[in-house]
Nucleic acid binder design. Sequence first.
DNA 1: AATCCCATGTAAAACGTTACATGATTCT
DNA 2: AGAATCATGTAACGTTTTACATGGGATT
Lengths: 199, 199
Amino acid sequence: MGGDAVLPPTAWAVLGLLSFPGERTGYELKKWADASLRFFYWSPAISQIYAELRRLEALGYATSRRSGPEAPRTKRAYAITDEGRAALAAWADGGRDVGPPVLKHPLLLRIWLGHLTAPDRLRDLVAEHIAQTRGELREARDALARVDRSDGPQSWSHPQVALRWSERRLEAEVGLAEAMLDDLAELEARGARGGVDGP
Amino acid sequence: MGGDAVLPPTAWAVLGLLSFPGERTGYELKKWADASLRFFYWSPAISQIYAELRRLEALGYATSRRSGPEAPRTKRAYAITDEGRAALAAWADGGRDVGPPVLKHPLLLRIWLGHLTAPDRLRDLVAEHIAQTRGELREARDALARVDRSDGPQSWSHPQVALRWSERRLEAEVGLAEAMLDDLAELEARGARGGVDGP
DNA sequence: AATCCCATGTAAAACGTTACATGATTCT
DNA sequence: AGAATCATGTAACGTTTTACATGGGATT
């Protein structure tokens, strides 16, 4: 089958999930993506994971087997094939340019349109974001702790690096939001005194 | 027309672009999005901007007029209507939750799969990303400088806050990548000495 | 005259989500 | 026995991108 296929990043991400030792079901993949992939590269919908797994299998990059009887809707575990591993390695190694990171930050969209919103509403939104981010930070640290413990073979050292990056990133995100809170406060102070310029 | 419509964030972003003083063509909107929106909320394809503008006009949230004769494919400038402004304000003010930021970072996907890639290839990728990010940082600062200069009315103070956030964010992104470079180097050092544990 | 940038638009395809339907397994 | 969670899959829909077609105006 396909010696080299053009696939969306999501397909490679799912194949990447499969590239770590062991067999996994789509359901398990989804949980894993929620717990780690999503910190630096979003977690696809479960239905999409199933779709990608079917595509990967059609390409010969993965195989599946049912644990029990050949009945529909019973557990199906996937494993990467040698071909899949080769294709993934070629993708990982190929292309000088990996493509720019994409950030969609709804909060910033709101801030940007801040002239339409009450100042304290805006502050609340930012505060809520900080709380949310702290929650994510805890989860990222949990994930990191799990990887640290499960060590042994070196296959997990790169996910570890990715999670460390995610941890720092979330810390930075909190700092960024706090700085923005200050900016907003300053804006209000200036606004309250009336003019565009200082007193 | 539509007293309250459910629209994707992109539609609100385009309407937001229109909510600042002046008329603009789709083409100008695209350039503006590239120069500022994209730092915190990605820049839609030009064809999508045209599509959103048509939808916004159909909803009565925007109006358009042709500068010259009523010929096809001539310049068409859009402006927001009062209804549009009201709808945008309602959207900006509504909904406690703004939705989580989404980050898709292809570089991190590669790092995460680092066991498939040569270590120095990985380093190159990160170095390239740092260079790229520094370029973005320059652009963000240019955008900020333009906004700073064009001041006067206060409508630009919130975009200014958003751009300041973006500037800091990009600075943080560089720091994050540098820290990851260190992690990678440490990994290699440990790997070169063989074991999973220290000396 | 050729080229580049401005400018608008269509069509097809891919991507991705939501909602729904279905049933097995495990825990209380 | 009932509930929660595990588990797979389909269908419909909306979003977004890519490629393409078209042509005016300005610059070299």
